[in-house]
């Protein structure tokens, strides 16, 4: 049986720069220029930022990165997300239930899928295609919640998005829930940092997450700048944090000392 063409459009393929290419999406494959990929063989998919614009990255062995103008890009992304190679489970989900430690109020339960690809866990519904890479999975636990007026066992998945901890809830038959919990726990174990952190390192990571600045971290934990720098280096080396700003420590030159001294004199005069 021949493939049914769903859309044909001009697109751009990224090959050390953007190259114009024709894109053809059928019910079985996607072709961008000379690259043809069977949709059922796509191992993962992601929206990525390239040259300040949003593009789609397809993983099938290597990576194929392309962009499509206008709304069509999100439609193609949605189609691929629903049809790529994955383990998919029909669930109800609420995502996010909390963000940054506070309940999100304007979110509703959605009927859709929890899909597991080569690199990520997805929440899929017609309105939402949320990808959580395995690196961003924090924890998974069962809990009881009131859903539709009934007490139900749900999975609480903690994950990270743009530096914030979010929790999402999953509701499905209990046998599927057990299996999902086990599956996700194994993934979290596999992707968690190999090196264990000490109590003080965990405290520092918690303070960074909460938005506390370096000077306050030193004061809260009673440690010196040098000590804190060493802890920071370890968190960066483990891939748990990245440097966003380097603090400067200064010493005054004789000229600077003279300015300060002069200023003090004039303050005395002002009194």
């Amino acid at each position: 049986m021949s493939e049914k063409v769903l859309t044909k459009t001009t697109a751009e393929l990224y090959k050390d720069g953007w190259v114009k290419a024709e894109l053809t999406l059928t019910d079985e494959s996607i072709t961008i220029g000379t690259e043809k990929v069977t949709i059922r063989e796509i191992e993962d998919l992601e929206l990525v930022e390239v040259d300040s614009s949003q593009a789609i990255r397809i993983k099938k062995g290597g990576d194929i990165v392309f962009r499509v103008p206008g709304k069509l890009q999100s439609q193609i992304f949605r189609f691929l997300a629903f049809n790529l190679k994955s383990d998919r489970f029909a669930v109800y989900f609420l995502s996010p239930a909390t963000r940054g430690g506070v309940v999100v109020t304007n979110v509703k339960w959605e009927k859709g899928y929890l899909s597991i690809t080569d690199e990520a866990v997805w929440f899929l519904s017609p309105n939402k295609q949320l990808r959580i890479s395995f690196d961003n999975l924090g924890s998974v636990d069962k809990d009881v919640r009131t859903v539709g007026g009934k007490q139900r066992v749900v999975l609480v998945i903690a994950h990270v998005e743009k530096g914030e901890v979010l929790t999402s809830l999953v509701l499905c038959p209990e046998t599927t829930l057990e299996m999902l919990e086990h599956y996700l726990k194994q993934l979290i174990e596999k992707y968690k940092p190999k090196s264990e952190l000490s109590d003080v390192e965990i405290q520092i990571a918690t303070l960074i997450y909460s938005g506390v600045d370096s000077v306050s971290i030193e004061s809260i934990l009673g440690i010196s700048t040098d000590e804190l720098d060493k802890y920071f280096d370890k968190l960066v080396d483990l891939g748990l944090a990245r440097v966003v700003k380097i603090r400067k420590e200064l010493e005054l030159t004789p000229k600077g000392v003279a300015v300060v001294s002069e200023a003090q004199k004039s303050q005395n005069i002002m009194r």
Binding site: T98, R99, G100, G101, V102, V103, E164, V165, T167, T206, Y209, S210, G211, V212
Partner: peptide, 15 residues
């Protein structure tokens, strides 16, 4: 109200 650990400063202030 309630806040869940770990929390972020702006969210705590907001709550």
């Amino acid at each position: 109200g309630y806040i869940i650990k770990p929390f972020q400063a702006p969210k705590v202030i907001e709550e």
